[in-house]
Design a protein around this nucleic acid. Structure first.
Lengths: 195, 195
DNA sequence: TTTGTGAATATTCAATAAAATATTCATTAT
DNA sequence: ATAATGAATATTTTATTGAATATTCACAAA
């Protein structure tokens, strides 16, 4: 029986609820344990440290963004070009949503990603994959004519950095960012399209 | 006589030397004043606060990056496409250079830009101008065929964010960033070029 | 064995006071 | 007047230490 994984998931869920409301520093291992009717010591059979629980929460949150972006790329009725735009606009939407509604979680992510870069890099890779899928679709439909799909996907993904990172939010309004994203995608599409 | 401006410049220069070596928090107004053979109180005739001196230093530093980038765009023997690549590679070079050799100044900039966003926005605007100049050149030489130059410049500049911000440095090697920059510029140029 | 705990220890946090420093101001010098 | 200062005040760091919390561990229950 793999009860262990179930327990781990429960711990992550419980901890995340606390982190969301009180932040990382103000939630204690004892509280998390209490919520699950166990002792604090017992948490350590499932996670090496509190930081590790936070890292798991962080990974789950980043995964959530990935799912939102994935949902966009799975829409049937959009051309590849439209999907690319939808992708970046969804990225912006999610960035703002998180910043406004879950500021504590954002802090958590910022802090965790300092130590655990592997998590970020892995999630970035997944996003590149999604963009690569969009490009593939464009190639198949004849919309695009891209030779090295992954290379293009990485390049495009790197160009979206501004729209993913909350530190830039104070510099621009959401409308400004959306405008910049539209203009950028328009330009990128000119380079991708078959000619 | 505009002795005042001269004095302000001296103060900025002196303060920057201290900030570079000891960081913002570990340099005192008294030390800066001593270096200039004046009293700390007298500094306040030239700057409203220590933060304001820091802001002025910050502005100078950001201006320095602008000058480096400007120098690239002024090179005579490069096509517009080559200049765009040179621009972003210079941006990366400067980012790494600063991070390695002047970490304290980087902290200063990060801290100042939290309060004084106007400074950052103004400098970002100047960089857009430089990119616009490159596009103009491309249009004139027949290399490009861009209708709305500033719109394209802003879009391109936003796509360079990853290469300008030191927080991403731990995630990638310089070689990786340079590779991404090359691929991105290649893609952008496909969109810009006359067809 | 596996699952779990309470108690011991190590680490971090928070409150306070002391010291250092930023800022203001009344006064002097030029 | 303008330029400048030393001393007074306000604010920010630093050091300290007691309390809170994370982590470990020896042992117990299943």
């Amino acid at each position: 029986m793999k009860k262990t994984e179930t327990k781990r998931a429960e711990i992550i869920e419980t901890a995340e609820r606390r982190f969301r409301e009180a932040g990382y520093n103000k939630t204690t291992m004892a509280e998390i344990a209490d919520d699950l009717n166990m002792s604090a010591a017992n948490l350590y059979r499932f996670f090496k440290s509190k930081q590790d629980i936070a890292a798991a929460c962080c990974e789950r949150c980043l995964g959530e963004r990935g799912e939102c972006l994935s949902a966009v790329t799975k829409q049937q009725d959009l051309s590849a070009g439209e999907k690319l735009l939808a992708f970046v606009l969804e990225d912006i939407r999610y960035t703002f949503e998180r910043a406004e509604n879950e500021p504590k979680i954002n802090e958590l992510i910022a802090s965790v990603t300092h130590n655990r870069q592997d998590i970020v890099i892995s999630k970035l890779g997944e996003q590149c994959e999604l963009i690569a899928e969009i490009i593939e679709q464009g190639n198949l439909s004849g919309e695009f004519n891209v030779v090295d799909v992954m290379k293009a996907a990485r390049a495009i993904h790197s160009s979206f950095t501004l729209f993913e990172v909350p530190i830039f939010l104070p510099l621009f309004t959401r409308e400004q960012l959306e405008m910049m994203a539209r203009d950028l995608v328009e330009l990128l599409l000119m380079g991708l399209r078959k000619r």
